[in-house]
Write a protein that binds this DNA or RNA. Structure first.
Lengths: 178, 178
DNA sequence: AGCAAATATGCAATTTTTTGCATAAAAATA
DNA sequence: TATTTTTATGCAAAAAATTGCATATTTGCT
């Protein structure tokens, strides 16, 4: 529904290829937007055909051409239009919690392992986000300016991951005196 | 992908109609699973045809029949099988944060209004979840037992909503000295 | 040197979700 | 009494996401 617009926001900040976008989704904004490479390439194709994106093909020695996309004025207009809409509340679908809800049908060890597995992922995520934050905070005031808004979203990622880990501690405490 | 299984978990706890499920999704577990009525009725049909659910039609005076679904042994088996799988990390797609990421293209007041609008929703959600928690904590030990696992998911909802509100405070502080 | 992983792009089929439409009675509110 | 909201169910078309397949080079590791 708004992967198109997520792509517009990213390309407005900095033009890039489909693979560049994939990495940005994975490494930088995965705590608020996720997309597979198939999805991204499909959308880029659609957006290019709709006139939202211009395509610059950079020939590379030996390697296949690098296809760099950037916003057209139409794409910019579409982005502004979308930004003005009021966003619907986030739709959450978390199967880990569905599984926990049905915990009475599972082995306690299975639940513990499930939580432990996710804990590792969230801890990795927290470390990555905190590293990005340190990098941002080390910048001189002037260079921080353009990242003001992305930084606010980064804070959301950090608080959100931390809240998950705090909850996991509660869960482990309960599971351990079962 | 696992709406089917979310429905199985809910019906395992207590049989009910499509509308009952809709209300449970909306009022009780909306912080970890959401589904529209169209989705629910479609899935119920599929699950019934697949032999996962038995249908009991309760005639009502005047009113149209109440269609109550409950798990068959096959449905129960399907649920147990799914519960044993390891759950993939939650896929997050939050358009509010995409919009905030592109905040440099928006009016500050527009952003503030957007945050304020969502803050109201999250505050309502927090109040509802805390009320459910109070209700649970007021139960005598024995009656609390069957709700142990749902209570853990409720805690996730509470911590999660609180983390969002804490973040919104940070955002407001930054936006106000812009 | 050989193999795995990362880089880089895409098509096609299937599944899932969303959106729009449709009906109809009961309960609540003005 | 009239209108709106809630209860209650469902079909069909369109949009979006997932899954499986396919290709080819480069980089890092053993």
């Amino acid at each position: 529904m708004s992967l198109k617009h997520a792509i517009l926001v990213l390309l407005e900040t900095e033009p890039g290829s489909g693979y560049d976008l994939l990495k940005r989704f994975r490494e930088h904004i995965g705590y608020f937007w996720n997309a597979s490479h198939q999805q991204i390439y499909q959308q880029l194709k659609w957006m290019h055909e709709a006139g939202w994106l211009a395509l610059r093909t950079e020939p590379q020695q030996g390697k296949p051409d690098r296809k760099v996309y950037e916003l057209t004025p139409e794409g910019h207009a579409a982005l502004l239009e979308w930004l003005a809409e009021t966003s619907k509340p986030q739709k959450v679908n978390d199967s880990l919690l569905v599984r926990l809800y049905g915990g009475h049908l599972r082995e306690a060890d299975n639940i513990r392992a499930d939580i432990a597995h996710h804990r590792k992922l969230y801890e990795q995520s927290r470390a990555a986000l905190l590293a990005i934050e340190q990098h941002y905070l080390a910048l001189p005031e002037a260079e921080r300016q353009p990242y003001r808004f992305p930084y606010l979203t980064l804070r959301r990622g950090i608080l959100s991951v931390q809240a998950w880990l705090d909850w996991a501690d509660e869960v482990d405490a309960v599971l351990n005196h079962l």
